[in-house]
Amino acid sequence: MTIKEKERKIDELKLKINELKLIESNEKIDFTDQIEELNEKILEMEKRIVDEMTPWDRVLVSREQKRPTSLEYIDEIFDDFIEFHGDRYFGDDKAIVGGIASLDGIKVTVVGEQKGTDTKDNIYRNFGMPSPEGYRKALRLMKQAEKFGRPIVTFVDTPGAFCGVTAEERGQGEAIAKNLMEMAGLKVPVLTFIIGEGGSGGALAVAVSNKIYMLENSIYGVLSPEGFASILWKDGTRAQEAADVMKITANDLLALKVIDGIIEEPAGGAHKDFSMVAGNIKEVMLRELKELQLLSQEELLNHRYERFRAFGKFE
C-alpha cells in the first residue's frame, strides 16, 4: 500500500467513526467499543505510515503542493512581519522573500525560499527556484541584520537554484558563492529551518548557519534524486533508487551531523496539522536563539566555521 492509499484508508475509517457517532446520537445505540476499536486502528495505521516511509515517500511529501510554504510559517510564527523587496541592483526575485519581524519580542531578520501555493502562484514564484538577484536580496537583508545586531532565521524550500540563461548571465555561480562566503562572516546568530526541499547549492546559499533544523519529511541533498540518477546512471527515471542511496532524509542527515535536529510532523506531512508544526518550529527557534544569543561574536563565528570545517572524511 502506498502512503496515499493508507491515508485514504484512514480517512475512510474516520468517516465510519462519524457515521457511528451519528447513529449513536440518533438511535441511542452504544457504539463506544466499536469506535474505540476504530480509533486504535487509525492510530496504528498512522504509526505504520510514519514507520514505513521510504526516502522516496518523503521526497513526495516534501514536494506536496499542499505543504506549507515559508510565508505561511512566517505569518504564523512571527509578529509584525514587514516584507522588504529587491537586491538594489537588478530586481526583486519572487522565489525568495525576506524582511524583519518580532519573535515574542526578539527582533529578527527572516529570509525564506518561497514556493507557490497553487499553479498560478508557483509560476509567479518560479517554483521556488531563486535567481541570482534572489540570493543577492537575501544577502542584502542578512547584512542589514548584522548592522542592527538582529539574529537571522532562514527557511529553505527549493528544488534548486534556477537553471536558465538569465541566471547564468547574471552570475548564478557568483551569487551563490558570495552568499556562502559572506554568511560565514556574519556576526549575528544564523538559524535555518529546512521545511520542504533542500535542493543543492540553491539551498546551501541561505543555510551557512550556526544551527540547522529539518522538518521530519523534508529532504536535503547534493542534487535532486532525478538529477543524481541522470548523472550517475544516465537514467532520470531511477530517482526512487537514487533517493535510497543519497542519504537525503532528516534521519540520515542528523547522523552525518549536517543538521542539528528534527522537527516532528503529523502522519502524512506538515499540511495535516499546520499549527502543530508551526508551533514545533517556534519552540525550537526560541530555544536556539536564546542559546545562540549568549555567545560572543567571536564564539558565534568560530562555532559556524568549525561546524562546516569539520565536514569530510579522507585518509
Partner: peptide, 15 residues
C-alpha cells in the same frame, strides 16, 4: 558519490 558531504565542501572552502 559523496552526496551531501560534497555539498558541504562548498561551504567549507568558502568559509
Amino acid at each position: 558519490q559523496e552526496g551531501i558531504i560534497s555539498l558541504m565542501q562548498m561551504a567549507k572552502t568558502s568559509s
